[in-house]
């Protein structure tokens, strides 16, 4: 079982070395432009012409494509089936069988939604696969984001697998005492209570101890925090970020006030 839920892939590439805020800006602007920008093919173009080349630049191309497809494919299939058959107001029938008829408007709507979602998932994956959470949070904290907030985000990535391990230990312990945890739905639901009780109460005790441990490491100290990790940034990256923000605002403007 992995020690944390981070998706980061360690590679030596220019994308990995980019400042996390730049990657965050790229991801969010791509998502917003994909959703708000004009044109039927925009999201597809953004994915093929921006996200895929960026992933190749970051030496994470295969992993990026594999994960995006794995995440988006079931959703896209569901969208196509539902929208092509039941899209309200669809008039152009492409083909018909039994009581069902597939309409062009539904297929088009499903395609647009699916490609926008693929663009969104891809943008997030590009960020998560190429950015170590520690680097991202260090940079955000340096820029004034609350250390408590970044702590909650990072610790969740690590503490959830620990809780999963603990839950497995409790299940094994209950099983060794004869509790049935497999089989029918009823048996599984019945096994939940003896799991949830120790897990929740145990976690509450853990929270107190973890709070003491954090205090003992001066987490609440009212001093200017420093960082072991140096996260590089440059004037050019700052310019790119500003450019992306302007571009996104323009897209939002065009959407709100069409020419």
């Amino acid at each position: 079982m992995p020690d944390n839920l981070s998706l980061y892939i360690e590679r030596d590439s220019p994308l990995q070395r980019l400042n996390p805020l730049t990657k965050l800006a790229i991801s969010f602007s791509l998502i917003l432009i994909g959703f708000l920008g004009p044109g039927y093919w925009l999201a597809t173009l953004l994915f093929i012409c921006v996200l895929v080349p960026l992933s190749i630049w970051g030496k994470i191309g295969p992993e990026f494509l594999q994960r995006t497809v794995r995440l988006i494919l079931p959703l896209a299939l569901f969208l196509f089936v539902m929208q092509s058959l039941f899209y309200p107001g669809g008039r152009t029938v492409l083909w018909r069988f039994w009581i069902f008829s597939v309409k062009l408007e539904g297929v088009q709507f499903a395609y647009l939604t699916a490609t926008r979602l693929m663009n969104m998932v891809g943008a997030f994956l590009l960020l998560l696969l190429s950015t170590h959470p520690s680097t991202l949070m260090t940079d955000l904290t340096r820029r004034g984001v609350s250390p408590s907030l970044t702590y909650i985000l990072v610790s969740t990535l690590q503490i959830i697998p620990q809780m999963r391990n603990k839950a497995n230990t409790i299940i094994d312990a209950q099983r060794s005492r004869g509790l049935e945890t497999q089989g029918s739905v009823r048996a599984r639901i019945g096994a939940l209570l003896p799991l949830v009780g120790p897990l929740v109460f145990g976690s509450l005790v853990d929270v107190e101890e973890r709070a003491i441990a954090l205090e003992a490491r001066a987490f609440k100290a009212k001093r200017v925090k420093t960082s072991l990790i140096h996260v590089p940034d440059s004037v050019r990256q700052r310019q790119v970020r500003i450019g992306l923000v302007v571009l996104t605002l323009v897209m939002i403007g065009i959407r709100l006030w069409p020419l």
């Binding site: 520690s134 610790s155 853990d206 101890e209």
Partner: peptide, 14 residues
Amino acid sequence: VFQNPGNQISGAKF
């Protein structure tokens, strides 16, 4: 430093 080693790991670092 106290008893439970797991709970003394901050969770903030990798």
